[in-house]
Amino acid sequence: MESLGEMLKAWPTGRTITEQAEQKLAELLAEPLVAKLRAKYPELDDHTIKINMSRVYQYVTEYRNCSDCPGLERCPNDFEGHYTMLGCDTSYGYPQLHDRKVACKKFTARQKEERIRSRIRSFYIDEKALRRGYSSDEILTNDLERAKAVGQLLRYIDRTKEHGLQEEGLYLAGQFGTGKTFLMCYMLQELAKAGYSGVIVYMPDFVEDLKSLMHEPGKLKETVEMMKETDLLIFDDIGAENLNPWVRDHVLGAILNYRMQRKPTFYTSNYELDALERHFSFTSKDGDELHKGQRIMDRIRPYVEVVMVTGENKRGRK
């Protein structure tokens, strides 16, 4: 933003700086915003305004900029997303003008969004699904066939906000494209606003990456610890991964064993629980291992509320 000094220098030649300053003072004194300031602080006289012309000029200019805001990215004020506020202090026996920077509503909203976003980590999930905001009415009316599932989800969110982290998570089961991942992303956003951290993991891609992490034990440990400790952990599309015994028993099993009775874990799947157990009971390497499938399910089944998500397939729908 151009300062008062720079503006005076740019004025046409032939007039002294003093004359230019006097004209600018007269303009500032005639400003409706300055009149409001003087109504608030009756002790604010012309002399005080004159010796604080730069402050008053900045105050008026930034107010005008904010009134015609071009957006945070193009904010013309000296301090992006902030404007100058003026106050008057008479504790010294004479009026003394002081200024301070105040964050605008748009800057405050962006900070809030960034704080919420920082609480959520996603692996292989479309960021648009996490960032797009929806109201509870919108997700309820988007597809009335899944209204019962949405109602269960909203009640779960309310319970968590009111009573803290629940012992049970949610298991969203249903056909392709009914919005299970979308509903989980909505839940993450809502609970992140309440201060909870969350991780959402797309299982098919995650399992493939775990195979390469076998050779990076430090990074593997860091990833597993993060999933153990986050408030809300979502395994998205579980059952669609190409499972191997090591992932099932030493990674997934370790995470679930730690979280049960500590923090809730959530799932979306095309499988119901019995079918998921059959999935976990067979690997291409070792064939049928019913007891190991049951062992994993003992860490899932008792710790979830099952939510059946019905409705039409929305993938590819315009």
Rank of each mutant, 00 (worst) to 15 (best):
L4S: 12
L4Q: 07
E6F: 04
E6P: 00
E6T: 12
M7Y: 13
M7I: 04
M7W: 08
M7G: 02
L8Y: 08
K9P: 01
K9G: 13
W11C: 04
W11Y: 09
W11N: 06
P12D: 09
T13K: 10
T13D: 14
G14R: 02
G14I: 02
G14S: 03
R15F: 02
T16A: 05
T16Q: 10
I17A: 07
T18L: 07
T18Q: 12
E19D: 07
E19K: 09
Q20G: 09
Q23T: 08
K24R: 12
L25H: 13
L25M: 12
A26L: 05
A26W: 02
E27W: 00
L28T: 03
L28C: 04
E31G: 07
V34R: 01
V34G: 00
A35E: 08
A35F: 00
K36Q: 08
K36T: 10
K36L: 05
L37Q: 00
L37K: 02
L37G: 01
R38A: 08
A39I: 05
K40S: 13
E43N: 12
E43A: 15
L44M: 11
L44P: 02
L44V: 11
D45T: 13
H47Q: 15
T48N: 14
I49R: 06
I49W: 05
I51W: 12
M53P: 05
S54W: 07
R55F: 12
R55Q: 14
R55A: 15
V56Q: 10
Q58N: 15
Q58C: 15
Q58P: 11
Q58K: 15
Q58W: 03
Q58T: 15
Y59E: 09
E62K: 02
E62H: 00
S67Q: 15
S67V: 09
S67L: 14
D68I: 01
D68R: 13
D68T: 11
C69A: 02
G71P: 02
L72D: 15
E73G: 02
E73K: 12
C75T: 03
C75S: 04
P76H: 09
P76S: 08
N77V: 01
